[in-house]
Write a protein that binds this DNA or RNA. Structure first.
Lengths: 227, 227
DNA sequence: GAGCTTCCGTGATACCCTCTAACTAATTCT
DNA sequence: AGAATTAGTTAGAGGGTATCACGGAAGCTC
């Protein structure tokens, strides 16, 4: 108790941690992996700490050494999902800010694991509230879209809705996007989400048409690339 | 609910339903009412047969006399939700087929009980598969949209995407909508759903702008009313 | 109205889940 | 080596779904 920490917490950057911390991080990672498996097959609502523990050969309550509870695990997964999406979009935007590239990166990411998409953009979980740091990542995602939209439009471009968005804007503040770019980014987001989420939820099954084609058409019809 | 289902279980000979059947229907109705209360406050995933039973003053397993299980209750609620939406839209379409009226009826219906909207158009429940008769109501809803869209467009109107939709169409077959109307209906559906579901899920909170205005703008921007 | 039948509601039970608490055993620190 | 920390265990409270056998009330028939 009386000791100052002479204890080694020395190299926060390199990952040279104590064995305990290494082990701990490793187990946490395995837990999350199993959790993703469960989510991928049965959705987030079916996630069971107990089942994960058994799968890992240990018994129930042991997991509470690693996560305070189911909610914290889910929070962590949401965080990872956001980060993963941000990474995917950033990678797509790396070689040229192109709406189409961005859009298809989004669709590919969603199709790769639909339940992961729903974890982020789906029906909100009753008690759950996203912590500040995940909304920060969400902001980054929006900023990526804004970048691409801004690049497509003349500097002062504006629209009626764009003006409204500009006037009451408390998001991505500091980003020099013209009003029309705000609208374009919003349209990109909500329209692609509309098409994608209905497709993933299975509402298109049995209708006969090709969801990819519909998605592409929605992309083409965006107010900036079309006209 | 207000409607005493008139001849749902016709009893030839006596004409009136037996007291048993009346009672049974009444209890089923009360169970569903309580279920809707729970859903409205905590979402479908928090629905508990046990809690409903206790709330009604009877003990757990009694409910299994009325519903085979949680899934059947939810199925019934989904069915009712679909029917309720179809009614709302039909009422809106009754006095003039107008996309705006339809759209705002949809939004009002969704805002009245967001969890009900998500029950129908949200993240799919893991094990749950919609029975044929709910998809029939879903078809009716689509048909309502199609009617309104058809009324707005010239008889043979077509678009590239519309042609594709027409060519691989296994929905609302028999409806004499021109290809362009198919596309318009799809756009109406997916775009409004995109804006609405993100709003209801809380993804717009903290962004500052007015969701109603955004929704209205999306409606205005539809490929038929705009140009 | 007596008797038969049908159906409602109950308690007991099995099996899931989350999560807490007390205890043991291993690991690490001094 | 001894002390402190921490991982993992079992036990158990509390809640959920769902099945079962039973008692009793309601309806139906004569």
């Amino acid at each position: 108790m009386a000791k100052p920490d002479t204890e080694a917490k020395p190299d926060p950057g390199t990952g040279a941690k104590t064995p305990r911390e290494r082990y701990r991080a490793q187990v946490r990672e395995e837990i999350k992996d199993r959790a993703w498996e469960q989510i991928a097959t049965a959705g987030a609502s079916a996630l069971s700490l107990n089942a994960i523990a058994k799968q890992m050969g240990m018994s129930g309550p042991a997991l509470y050494r690693y996560f305070a509870g189911r909610d914290e695990l889910i929070t962590e997964l949401v965080r990872d999902a956001y980060r993963s999406l941000a990474d995917a979009l950033r990678a797509a935007a790396a070689d040229g800010a192109d709406l189409a590239r961005l859009a298809h990166a989004l669709r590919d990411w969603a199709l790769a694991d639909p339940h992961r998409y729903f974890l982020v953009y789906g029906t909100p979980v009753p008690g759950y509230h996203a912590p500040a740091d995940t909304t920060a990542i969400a902001d980054e995602i929006v900023a990526l879209l804004l970048d691409a939209c801004t690049a497509l439009l003349p500097a002062g471009a504006t629209t009626p809705l764009g003006a409204h968005l500009q006037e009451h804007r408390t998001w991505a503040e500091g980003h020099p996007a013209p009003p029309a770019a705000l609208q374009l980014a919003m349209n990109l987001w909500t329209r692609l989400h509309g098409a994608l989420s209905l497709e993933l939820a299975g509402h298109f099954t049995g209708m006969g048409f090709d969801p990819a084609r519909y998605f592409a058409a929605e992309l083409d019809g965006l107010p900036a690339s079309g006209r």
